[in-house]
Design a protein around this nucleic acid. Sequence first.
DNA 1: AGTATCTCCTGCGTGC
DNA 2: TGCACGCAGGAGATAC
Length: 273
Amino acid sequence: MPELPEVETSMRGIAPFVEKQKIRNITVRDDRLRWPVPVKDLNRLSGNVVHKLERRAKYILMHTELGAILLHLGMSGSVRVIEPDSDRVIEKHDHIDFEFYNDVLIRFNDPRRFGCCLFIKPPLEQHKLLGSLGPEPLSDAFDGDYLHQRTRGKTAPIKNVIMDGHVVVGVGNIYASESLFEAGIRPITQAGKISKQRLTKLVDEIKAVLAKAIEAGGTTLNDFTQADGKPGYFRHELQVYGRSGESCYRCGSTLKSMVLGQRNTFYCGNCQR
DNA sequence: AGTATCTCCTGCGTGC
DNA sequence: TGCACGCAGGAGATAC
């Protein structure tokens, strides 16, 4: 499920309830996520303050004095805020609770268990998961020059390249299709053969699509919810994703789909060359 | 190094 | 109503 906009939305949703708050207790009901949840490390955090939340790539980092809790929502994960005095009924796949002294509960739910919850010690940037990440797509470091340089000699389809977190982080399957449509580039085009001018356009569209999606609170297809339980509204903005067989809003052609890197990919054969 | 394929897991929609 | 099947937003591991 969650791509960068959904992770950003989730982090913004929980930040006001969590930042500068002291952890009372962390309850792990099921430690079988992508990697085993380090229950002992998390238990040692009781009494520590989460001084800051940060999103890096699709990770949410909860910074404490001892190190950071690293959350990833995988394909089906969510975090939600449970405020004091509200219903605390535990539902299926509610794997972890982060309880704070302000009586707020942050609940991590992940049906498919592709997500993770780890504890990492400083220096954080040297952690294996964070060490080799590409730049943030919304940062100035990600520009046409950079993408041009990183794609030279590559024969892989451009869609696979922009979804590779070592090149640029946070561009998942939905927004890869969407930004390639906006840039007028066919997803299967060999990355190394695309001109700097067109790659610059692609960079601009990736930034624009992600920014718009964040503004809309992410994309809800089946199960994504924001931290307050509401869906994201970017689904209504999707131009090509999930629309094969339907008409292109721009030219009226029938949209197509193909599989690239095991992932379904949507495009307009007329608007994208 | 670059590329392609496999893998983890549950839930949902579809078609018989 | 039941069941088999295919597919799903991620991304590290593995095998060339």
